[in-house]
Nucleic acid binder design. Structure first.
Lengths: 159, 159
DNA sequence: TATTGTTATACTCTATAACTATA
DNA sequence: TATAGTTATAGAGTATAACAATA
């Protein structure tokens, strides 16, 4: 492993792993890896859980609404929900008010799996935040919320 | 438990957008969107900048080393570096010590583009962190660093 | 005419395997 | 035999366009 000393300059502009973008991205990936590993025994990915959670909390009911909240294309929603429905976790019901729309609901088994998944994720989150004091953990979560609200607002343009 | 009611329960387990995983993921995506938009005029993606930054800071020199630091497969590195080399930003030089290895270096134009890119990203970061006090911004970055170090250590197993 | 869900298609990113040239 | 880079190929994930049913 002899270092090639082609590069005389050790660090002209900070270290590559100090950049905010690097940190945020890899913290995300680390959390996602941990989540996917914890959810695998339940047959869910963290992506699946996002969808199931939106249905469980009633934040949205139609396929496109759910996708919009999570940044998932409506065409991708079809395959995901096909899968979750085939496995008996969710149910599509035509809306009585607008028969174009599918109202999504969890089956009893879907509800059980969702509760199990949230318990697993609570463990993942606790382990993930363990290196921070409980004060710093709260501050961290609050900072994320603040940054996301500001960024989403900026995306839609100032005004 | 007769909770066959479609959406009787408004929020049995918190809101979907309060989950740590959701927050971290979407903060990452928002920062990446802002970065990609700021770098587009330079012809770089945030992914490109990651590679260029590792080369510029001398953190790694061979293709596989760079990929390992950033979590990019060696086969993906080939196409990325082909592109950056075609555009005259990086140069592959066979290592004199091990002629299987390519030592990557920035061309003068690559160095200029890299400096421009870091300036753009500094603006993106400042805008992104603007909703936090400078104290909270520092705490936020420190928390990210702490979490990432702990998570990466855990990935490799305790011990 | 517009919208929801759907299908088909393409394009990007990533993952696996095999090849070459070096070691 | 093992490794760095490369190529080919297949697999996800996502995006675009078109279609059917409904509004």
């Amino acid at each position: 492993m002899a270092d090639d000393d082609v590069t005389a300059d050790p660090s002209p502009a900070g270290r590559y792993d100090e950049a905010l973008g690097y940190l945020v991205k890899h913290v995300h990936l680390a959390h996602q890896r941990a989540s996917d590993a914890a959810l695998a025994p339940l047959g869910l990915t963290s992506r699946d859980l996002g969808v199931v959670r939106v249905i469980a909390t009633g934040a949205a009911t139609s396929q496109q609404e759910i996708g919009a909240l999570l940044g998932i294309d409506r065409t991708s929603m079809v395959a995901m929900l096909d899968d979750l429905e085939d496995r008996g976790l969710v149910r599509r019901q035509p809306s009585p008010h607008d028969r174009r729309r599918n109202v999504l609901a969890l089956t009893p088994e879907g509800e059980r799996t969702y509760q199990d998944a949230e318990r697993e994720i609570a463990v993942v989150d606790a382990k993930f935040l363990e290196p921070l004091s409980s004060n710093d953990s709260r501050r961290f979560a609050r900072a994320l919320r603040t940054l996301l609200d500001a960024a989403d607002g900026a995306d839609r343009g100032p005004g």
